[in-house]
Design a protein around this nucleic acid. Sequence first.
DNA 1: CCATTGATCGTCT
DNA 2: GACGATCAATGGT
Length: 219
Amino acid sequence: MGGREGTDRGVGPLSRPFDREILSGPVLAAGRELLGAVLEVDSPQGTVAVALSEVEVYAGLADPASHAYRGRTGRNAVMFGPAGFLYVYFVYGMHWCCNVVCGPDGEPSAVLLRAGRVVAGEELARARRPAARTATELARGPARLAGTLGLVGTDTGADLLDPASPIRLLAGTRIPDAKVRRGPRVGVAAAAEVPWRIWVDGDPTVSAYRANTRRRVAT
DNA sequence: CCATTGATCGTCT
DNA sequence: GACGATCAATGGT
């Protein structure tokens, strides 16, 4: 169960993989270009695809909010490899969140996929996320997006740009500059001032902005 | 609409 | 042993 064996293409072979050159370049530019791209995931239950509306950039070893900040560990190892691979991590004891590894090989950057619109497999997405009251909520937020797509930690390392992969990043409709907005990252304590959250202006699938909500420790 | 809080565990110190 | 790149339920305005 939970494997990626049974393939059943949704968007189909007409769509082309995202450009690895773009992902391998400067991570902020890569994040901006990911808006409008489509992440498509096969499972035995079917295929779900999401068009990205919101992302966050985590920029290499110098970014104190990045999982790579304190160097290579078992969890973040894939970030240190080439661009275009999937990094899925577990947070708050119950949620998965997914990233696209970006930047040059050896420079551990990643782009967190924060939100998107379900463009294929909505019935399966709704079965996975029964709490969603509307279609726009199915992938509004990073853990919801990962849950809608059925992504978990063992999916880390998938080559998103291989057409034969069950988890594929596809070139979608590029968002024009006039609709691209940037601001502070969500829920991040370190480097809270850098405007590395990028989203599509006015898109209802974009998550509600929350400044970091770290709990106060009991006195 | 907004603010608050409990849930829950892998990962790193 | 502490802490999250969060969500959903709850209760107030």
